[in-house]
């Protein structure tokens, strides 16, 4: 059994706060686009996009999704099975892209996403929003917006959904 570290209400409040922080940092929603990482970040990108468009009703901030499996650095080390298909139907050139993922761990997925997003154009800036930062980074990558910092063991399993965040320790009972 896992420990619940965030309830559904906690997740909802974190999403609202992150959305406000994004708008505050950008001083508005001009040329702002949200890109969720398939698959875990897709629901969170939707939630942040919805929240931002409620806060700034005129903004019309678009939400896209990127599958990074073909940009991963472990291709050839293990079989890579792409998840859901990328969907970015807006121009990325000159925009501020906020990459969104549920859990930030080694940073390798984010590195792949940084590379992947360049195939769609040259953003003015790329930022990173995550619901959980669980540590154990293997690359120099740092999130701009964090729902909760969660110290974990490297073997722990962290599941983040709209219903809450659950951590399961695989080692100790």
């Amino acid at each position: 059994m896992g420990n619940i570290v965030m309830s559904a209400d906690d997740v909802r409040r974190a999403i609202t706060r992150i959305s406000h922080e994004i708008l505050e940092r950008q001083q508005g929603a001009d040329k702002l686009v949200i890109v969720g990482l398939q698959r875990g970040g897709a629901w969170l990108a939707d939630a942040i996009g919805t929240a931002i468009n409620q806060i700034e009703p005129q903004a019309g901030v678009p939400v896209g999704y990127i599958d990074v499996s073909m940009h991963r650095d472990d291709i050839g080390l293990r079989p890579v099975v792409p998840g859901a298909i990328s969907r970015i139907s807006f121009a990325v050139d000159g925009s501020t892209v906020v990459l969104v993922d549920d859990v930030l761990f080694t940073g390798r997925t984010v590195r792949a996403a940084l590379e992947g997003i360049n195939a769609y154009g040259r953003p003015r800036a790329v930022q990173l929003a995550v619901l959980i930062d669980r540590g154990h980074r293997e690359l120099p990558i740092r999130p701009d917006y964090v729902g909760k910092n969660l110290p974990t063991h490297i073997d722990d399993d962290v599941r983040a959904t709209e219903a809450g965040v659950v951590i399961t320790n695989q080692v100790a009972p």
Partner: peptide, 23 residues
């Protein structure tokens, strides 16, 4: 199903991915 992913790759402004680098 995998072809569907590749169709999306081909629609990107830069239709190239590093998946088979070195092969």
């Amino acid at each position: 199903n995998l072809t569907q992913h590749m169709v999306e790759v081909n629609r990107r402004p830069i239709p190239k991915v590093p998946a088979l680098r070195g092969r």
